[in-house]
Design a protein around this nucleic acid. Structure first.
Lengths: 225, 225
DNA sequence: GCAAAAGTGTTTGGGATACACCCATGC
DNA sequence: GCATGGGTGTATCCCAAACACTTTTGC
């Protein structure tokens, strides 16, 4: 593409905030930077988004290469979050970052060219660039989405118990919920259905397994909580 | 900025969906394209976003130049909407567009290097690029924001009557609301305050003027409607 | 039998909805 | 005095919140 006047676009990058629950805690995937700038610091997985690829395509190949995670196979949900574009956010020069937020369940396949680790979203280390802001924004968005969509699906197995569902809500919202009210409200939304299976999880009464009625993102007419 | 490997970013553009009410109708500002591609068709105001400027800075100068509108002075509100990045959206080559949604009140200053006109959002002409999608997305976002923020502020004068406020809600949501319930609910939100002034708008009882308590965007704890 | 999580109902208060008439002004 | 929009109250229903005990299993 060429232009009548001289035109130079900023660098375009992509970054992903990837969530999953580990031990009932909301975790985010971070990589340790091997090079300057911010060498040795923690950062979100991300990289350059070149001409000829959509940002999500670029993100998919970067995430696969750097942290060994397949965003279609390993994630249950991903959406565009926001585009961060302040001039000084990258010390090397002006870089505009299109960010994504994704959710998964029991992801263990992490391991690529960069060292990566899941960190509790409530106890993050110092982060490179403006990545702390990006994570804060993603967490807020996810909280909001729990209330009016079936986004909790992203953090659960295909079949799950009501207690596991409640754990997702509690971990993301950061507060405890009443078990009876939670079940009543959620079952009223007609978002999930009972399956015939049960979960035998230990030395206690087995729990019924439920599944979401729809595999795709849904917006609720009346919102939850 | 230079790179270890060859890296070429896509073109970065900005586009704005600007709303205002005219005759109780929600209108969006469109320009008529003077050149190929899509010569003669209607499009959103927008243009290239160069290195060294944030997208909102680039948008401000483009909108000022092309349609003669000052986004700080003429608009009451603007926010980033979404980044559209499909490869084929611009026939000239891969162009990623960071889009914004803005609202104003009684804007009459339109007139720049491009012919521009306000169009009812419910009766749009054929639009260039993917701009119809962008407008649909903006309208949805604005609808949603009316429910849980003070975004209606953006489409009103600093002081307004409750009927004018209700008109904003009806125009954006696209349905009629009950006057008594609307007033009760809105006054309960403690988002607006009565002023001592009244509006004498014609051959009928004068209406009390109200003002928003806060000039800046606010999110409500309990949502409206 | 005991530890551990699953499962279950009722009461109360507040907001949502539906609905119709009088009031203040200009002309 | 009449046309025009401004302004007001009540009854009903449903949802949200608070709250504690019994059930089923593994060991």
């Amino acid at each position: 593409m060429h232009y009548k006047q001289a035109y130079k676009p900023p660098t375009l990058t992509v970054d992903a905030v990837l969530f999953q629950l580990v031990d009932d805690q909301l975790m985010v995937l971070l990589t340790r930077r091997a090079e300057e700038p911010f060498k040795g610091e923690w950062a979100l997985p991300g990289g350059y988004s070149p001409e000829g690829q959509t940002t999500i395509q670029a993100l998919a190949s970067i995430v696969k290469r750097k942290v060994g995670l397949d965003i279609t196979a390993d994630l249950r949900y991903i959406e565009q979050l926001y585009t961060f574009d302040t001039i000084a956010r990258d010390p090397r020069g002006h870089a505009v970052s299109v960010t994504y937020m994704g959710c998964g369940y029991a992801i263990t396949t992490v391991g690529g060219s960069q060292f990566a680790e899941w960190h509790p979203v409530d106890q993050l280390p110092t982060l490179a660039y403006d990545h702390a802001d990006i994570i804060a924004y993603a967490r807020e968005r996810l909280s909001a989405k729990l209330a009016y969509t079936n986004a909790a699906m992203g953090l659960l197995d295909k079949k799950f118990t009501l207690s596991q569902l409640q754990t997702v809500y509690e971990a993301v919202l950061g507060r405890e919920l009443d078990k009876r009210n939670f079940r009543k409200k959620f079952l009223n939304l007609e978002l999930i259905r009972e399956t015939s299976e049960v979960w035998k999880g230990g030395a206690h009464r087995p729990a019924k397994l439920y599944a979401f009625n729809s595999d795709s993102p849904e917006t609720l007419s009346r919102s939850f909580d």
